[in-house]
Write a protein that binds this DNA or RNA. Structure first.
Lengths: 211, 211
DNA sequence: CAATAAGTTGACCGTACTCTCAACTTATTT
DNA sequence: AAATAAGTTGAGAGTACGGTCAACTTATTG
């Protein structure tokens, strides 16, 4: 659907796009903490223009990573297209972690709580698909039956930190971390867990929390 | 052994101690990014005094956490005193993660690369003990034989991130993360790993790296 | 081609932080 | 109780950042 708002003037649209792509590159290379002034300068516009388009840093971050939710949903779809449920889960987690490893900004985004983009329909779709990936893997008997979708956050958070630490020295080290984690998620590895899973609302709180 | 340098004047010593304990509290509560001015103010001394004692932020951090290396070594000793090698490893990792969970500053410290304290003899002792914890667990057949001491960094990094994320909502959630990870470290869970372990020098590089 | 709306500029304000130093105060020494 | 060495102070320099706005420029419209 076309956006309801009146279209931007064409130079304004050009500047906006420029800012987003510039920010995307800088975020990818150096993480989410790049200064907004530097982004504007690199894009060749004044800082006023940046603030005109994106009043808040979160607005810019949201614009830069707006497509990622859909990307994750697509990955989830591919994962569900794999016949073997366990292989599907592994595929999903590997691909998501690859996204993190390829983009320091995205890695920061999944790590830190940040902007809280308003929940979109892609969000809901991705969530549904992920639930199915987990359920299917669990019902197949490959995934341990005491883990939930929320436990996948541990995978994401953990590899995010490993990606950050090892990026300079061994960019693929996170694969080893992930593999160990995956071996712990197998039904055959299951031992009683010491703590109940995060409830969906708790995880939502964590994601939403800004600080 | 008494320090070789001339002892501080007694008010200077008092101020120094005050700064360290104040910094310890603030770091523990709010992480390593507390401003130095605030630490000085809270301690009731001027910022000049702080910089007189600790020219660099890293110097203060080092003073605050100087004892932690010895603490970890002690935990390692306790772990080795446990008869069952696997239980010893679990004990060690749980206790270290508890340290992280109890102190946001320490959690930051193990996460981010920061100051690179000069390697002390406690360091070497801790290292030796940790090697023995791992070797013993592996030789007992409980720990998978394709993991190394360096793989424990994944445990530390991972839980560090989970601690950070969940501290406000479910302070014990990291125990679940750790338990999943531990299940992946069991010999019975072992599947081939996709990436060679970090070499000791690589891990040292990561720890040393400042940025 | 006006006329007007839309967008841009860059200097500037406020804030927060690290770090310095000359003037001052306090402890220690003889 | 001087004399001296040691330590403290707090204002302020320097930096970087987010964010604002009145004056200016540019696109669009009739």
């Amino acid at each position: 659907m076309p956006p309801r708002t009146k279209p931007l003037r064409k130079d304004a649209q050009r500047n906006r796009d420029l800012l987003v792509t510039t920010a995307r590159e800088l975020f990818a290379a150096r993480g989410l903490d790049v200064s907004l002034d530097e982004i504007a300068r690199t894009a060749g516009v004044s800082s006023g223009t940046l603030y005109n388009h994106f009043p808040d840093r979160a607005d810019l971050v949201e614009a830069v990573f707006a497509d990622r939710v859909a990307t994750v949903a697509e990955i989830a779809e591919h994962a569900l297209a794999i016949a073997d449920p366990w292989a599907g889960l592994v595929h999903f987690l590997e691909r998501v972690c690859e996204l993190q490893a390829a983009d320091r900004g995205y890695n920061d985004l999944v790590s830190r709580r940040l902007p809280q983009a308003p929940p979109t329909e892609d969000h809901a779709r991705g969530y549904e698909l992920m639930v199915r990936i987990i359920d299917r893997a669990r019902e197949s008997g490959a995934l341990r039956d005491d883990v939930t979708l929320e436990d996948m956050a541990f995978v994401t958070w953990g590899t995010a930190r490993t990606v950050e630490a090892t990026a300079g020295v061994r960019p693929q080290a996170w694969r080893r971390h992930l593999a160990l984690m995956l071996d712990g998620l197998r039904a055959t590895a299951a031992r009683p867990l010491p703590e109940p899973p995060l409830r969906p609302e708790e995880l939502a709180d964590i994601m939403r929390a800004c600080s």
